[in-house]
Design a binder for these strands. Structure first.
Length: 716
DNA sequence: TTAGGGTTAG
């Protein structure tokens, strides 16, 4: 149980005041070298220091123990060992234990050491000491088993826990409520809920902690409705009321299910039980409201919390990200820093996600600085987020720099870099990285396969794509999901194998979702196959009637074929379904200032120069053989279509880039929709005419234009 | 003098 701070200091004062001179007061007393300390007084000092966790004082007490020849007293040895651990120095605990050859080591001291090693996430050391203890002839008791089981859970394999389970039976501790609960928790953490349930069912007595272990177990297994069931049973059957652990667990289940109604009920229960002021409950409540789409309610709670910990800030920052409020997410990050809260890897992961979504290179670089200042540069999760941020902000060079500097790369780091290459059109490099990762013995995960299959599709590597696709089943527990099928359809579609792609979809063991069908519709657009295109578009209209992209794609295909009436019909259907095309907008950063353009925009301070630049650009590209693709000017009156094309938002941003960015600097433009075909053509010409690198990030991918060519090879 | 359960992110 945590001791409130006031109690701690009172207790220390009490000890000092009750201690006769020269021990009275304080810090002097720790340094006392005469042998005036009795073992009880030293123990009292040890207990007092346990609250202050002062390592220097601990060392001074240690000296006193040695001076007074008290090392043979088990309770002093044990308390000193615990004190070193609580001061954060487990190595000293181990050293004290291992070098105390003359001292008597009973089961209590062994258990104490095992407990601390377990808590310090040193499971293998804890297991080694457990075995050593047994080999010296000391039998483990119910305390020892409760202490060692969390280490078994932490050892990455259920086998240690299973062996321990056998030993528990052998020693007859299977009916102990603490041991039983620790067993349930161990199996749950090893995601073996069947065994956890069996142990739970066989327990002669259970308490709230046992029930909570089951709630958390189901939560970890993503069996959220089961976690809710257990919570309901606690309310019905258990004499104790749910506590903060039960509530935060069930709220997390509600959050992940998007179950607002029950989440609100739990809020009410927690309120009645007086639990809402507790940090864990508050954070879980905020997370539940965020994940259920009520960011405002979460924010209201956030404002009421007096003592916000890092998780509270993380929940709010992530809430902003989930609701598309990326600038706000960054603002909360800086606000948190001014409040003096130390970010953790989850904070960085969220705020870098926000920064990447904004393609805000400046913001991202400032956050990168923070990761270095706070010592997170070697954290694999943070480094992966940095790679993604740089890649999405248009800088593959910086992404690669971060990747090269990572000391220990895990699968997430590799995948982030593979995805970065793939998004920038460097498909072969992405495939090479994937192979290099395999060569290092790192097992690809679900997302690694999405990235490499996507790279195969961009590079047109059908054979390799199918080899990787079928190799997925070699990875235990891995099954291709919709994203993987979509990549394969894209791969076939890109090469014009539309019938084959259609047959592939029909043979899928899972129901094709919009990403799979969308990939085929995109291919139909590129190859002008109206027959399959119509059929797939119809299925997509039913599947996602609110997505304007599908209507626009089909309408453009029809316009291209001169089938104006049918194209109008599709646009009418769009209106009937209440779908509105999101207005296109593009933005570009010049000297830390972001300029945003919509079509025909004349709000910029340099508008006249921008329109003049576009007029010149038009002349230059026409000389190079440019022909306007008027089907992209769908909303214009006939005759004005060509002119209308010239004022698309990405062209306006390009013109500003040409005017305002220094010669040789890449022009980075961002767009909220897919880029238009005519703009794509003009960007290619412009990259050649001006000898400049133009990077256009649209809603789906990057287009990197150099020397008249695009990295997407005209397929997007 | 020793023991069991917790929120966020990827």
């Amino acid at each position: 149980m945590k001791v409130p701070f006031r109690l701690k200091s009172n207790k220390i004062d009490a000890i000092f005041h009750s201690t006769p001179s020269p021990l009275r007061l304080s810090h002097q007393s720790y340094r006392q070298t005469s042998s005036t300390h009795s073992s009880t007084r030293l123990n009292n000092l040890l207990n007092a220091t346990l609250h202050t966790k002062n390592l220097k004082h601990a060392t001074q007490i240690h000296t006193q123990i040695i001076t007074n020849n008290y090392t043979c007293l088990p309770f002093l040895l044990n308390n000193l060992l615990s004190l070193y651990a609580k001061c954060g120095n487990i190595n000293r605990s181990v050293l004290l234990f291992s070098t105390n050859h003359g001292g008597f080591k009973n089961v209590v001291i062994w258990t104490s050491l095992i407990t601390h090693l377990s808590r310090f996430s040193k499971p293998f050391k804890a297991l080694t000491f457990f075995n050593e203890m047994r080999s010296t002839g000391i039998y483990p008791n119910h305390f020892t088993f409760s202490a060692i089981l969390p280490a078994c859970a932490d050892s990455m394999t259920v086998q240690h826990g299973e062996q321990m389970h056998c030993l528990i039976w052998k020693h007859g501790f299977q009916t102990d409520i603490f041991v039983g609960t620790a067993l349930v928790d161990m199996y749950a953490k090893c995601t073996d809920m069947t065994s956890a349930e069996r142990v739970f069912a066989e327990m002669p007595d259970r308490n709230l902690v046992s029930w909570n272990s089951m709630i958390v177990g189901f939560l970890q297994k993503k069996l959220y409705y089961r976690a809710v069931e257990i919570f309901r049973e606690v309310r019905r059957q258990v004499s104790d009321s749910p506590d903060e652990v039960s509530c935060s667990g069930v709220l997390s289940a509600c959050a992940n299910m998007g179950c607002l109604e029950f989440g609100r009920q739990v809020h009410g229960i927690a309120f009645k039980l007086g639990l809402v002021a507790l940090t864990y409950v508050n954070n879980s409540l905020m997370d539940m409201y965020c994940k259920c789409g009520l960011f405002g309610d979460a924010l209201e709670l956030f404002k009421t919390i007096g003592d916000r910990d890092v998780v509270a800030w993380n929940v709010v920052i992530m809430g902003c990200v989930h609701s598309g409020k990326f600038e706000e997410a960054c603002r909360y990050f800086w606000f948190m820093r001014t409040e003096g809260i130390a970010p953790d890897e989850a904070t960085y992961s969220s705020v870098l996600h926000a920064s990447a979504s904004l393609s805000a290179l400046n913001q991202g670089t400032l956050i990168h600085d923070q990761t270095i200042k706070t010592g997170f540069m070697n954290n694999a999760c943070v480094a992966s987020s940095l790679i993604t941020m740089y890649a999405k902000s248009g800088s593959l060079v910086d992404a690669n720099r971060v990747f090269e500097e990572i000391q220990e790369r895990n699968v997430v780091c590799w995948t982030a870099m593979i995805a970065a290459c793939q998004q920038h059109g460097c498909a072969n490099q992405a495939i090479e990285l994937f192979e290099e990762m395999l060569g290092k013995g790192i097992e690809p995960d679900y997302i690694s396969f999405v990235s490499v299959l996507s790279a195969c599709s961009h590079a047109g590597h059908v054979k390799e794509g199918f080899v990787y696709f079928s190799s997925m089943t070699d990875v235990p527990g891995m099954n291709p999901g919709p994203e993987h099928y979509a990549c394969m359809v894209d791969l076939l579609g890109r090469l014009g194998k539309l019938e084959e792609a259609k047959r592939f979809i029909e043979s899928m063991p899972i129901k094709p979702d919009s990403s799979v069908l969308g990939a085929l519709l995109g291919a139909c657009r590129n190859y002008g196959n109206l027959e399959i295109g119509r059929e797939i578009a119809k299925r997509l209209f039913e599947l996602e009637p609110d997505n304007p992209g599908n209507y626009v794609l089909l309408a453009n295909m029809l316009t291209r074929k001169g089938m104006m009436e049918e194209a109008d019909e599709v646009r009418r259907l769009m209106g009937v379904n209440g779908v509105r095309k999101e207005p296109g907008c593009s933005w570009i950063d010049v000297k830390n200032i972001t300029s945003v353009f919509t079509v025909h925009d004349r709000s910029h301070s340099r508008t006249d120069e921008i329109y003049e630049m576009l007029r010149k650009l038009e002349e230059l590209v026409i000389r190079k053989g440019y022909k306007p693709e008027t089907q992209f000017a769908i909303n214009s009156v006939e005759g004005y279509k060509e002119q209308s094309l010239w004022y698309h938002s990405e062209k306006l941003a390009l013109a500003l880039g040409l005017l305002a960015l220094p010669v040789g600097a890449p022009i980075i433009i961002k767009k909220n929709l897919r880029t238009c075909g005519d703009c794509h053509t003009v960007m290619k010409f412009a990259s050649e005419i001006f000898g400049r690198e133009i990077i256009l990030r649209d809603v789906n991918r990057f287009h990197r234009f150099t020397n008249g060519l695009c990295s997407c090879k005209d397929y997007w």
